[in-house]
């Protein structure tokens, strides 16, 4: 069955139509060409597909496209403003928080959520590690990702 819905993706209104069982990540990647959001597993473990739904990190492989009806969706492509990387993207670059780049978009979206949940607090390593456990990285051993999140939280809390 075909379903239709409307949502906002990276600030732009979208009227969508797709097969009812289409996952949000499939819709973003295959219908909208937003291939920055990745699929790394089929069991909601890896977090590569994390996007923001109304500002909250969600795994877009575990949500139907139609369930995003009326939502504001932000993907990795929507983070940079006027060509300026988001402070979290910048911190990943400065701290070498990525290698192959495949888990990176989901990692960045989740990491922003961590800082958002602890606005005004001084984040510590333990909290970051605990709250990142829904995102798997095979390359970095997480060491530099944790450093990046801590560095970005300093910048984001000042903003």
């Amino acid at each position: 069955m075909t379903v239709s819905f409307s949502m906002t993706v990276n600030g732009k209104p979208v009227k969508g139509e797709c097969e009812d069982r289409t996952l949000l990540v499939q819709y973003l990647r295959e219908h909208m060409g937003l291939t920055g959001t990745h699929v790394g597993c089929d069991t909601t473990q890896c977090g590569c597909c994390t996007v923001h739904i109304d500002g909250i990190p969600m795994k877009s492989c575990t949500m139907l496209a139609v369930s995003a009806d009326g939502c504001e969706v932000t993907t990795i492509e929507g983070l940079a403003k006027d060509g300026q990387l988001h402070p979290m993207q910048d911190a990943f670059r400065e701290n070498h928080g990525l290698q192959c780049g495949f888990c990176t978009p989901g990692m960045v979206m989740s990491a922003i959520g961590i800082v958002d949940r602890h606005r005004g607090e001084k984040l510590d390593e333990k909290t970051v590690r605990h709250e990142l456990e829904g995102n798997i990285c095979r390359c970095t051993g997480y060491h530099n990702i944790v450093k990046a999140v801590l560095a970005a939280s300093e910048v984001m809390n000042k903003a």
Partner: peptide, 21 residues
């Protein structure tokens, strides 16, 4: 030095095989 490839990966502009249609 920071990596040249990172800007595209961080912006979601990498091209992995499944991104090719």
């Amino acid at each position: 030095i920071t990596r040249k490839e990172d800007r595209r990966f961080l912006a979601g502009r990498g091209t992995y095989t499944d991104d090719i249609n």
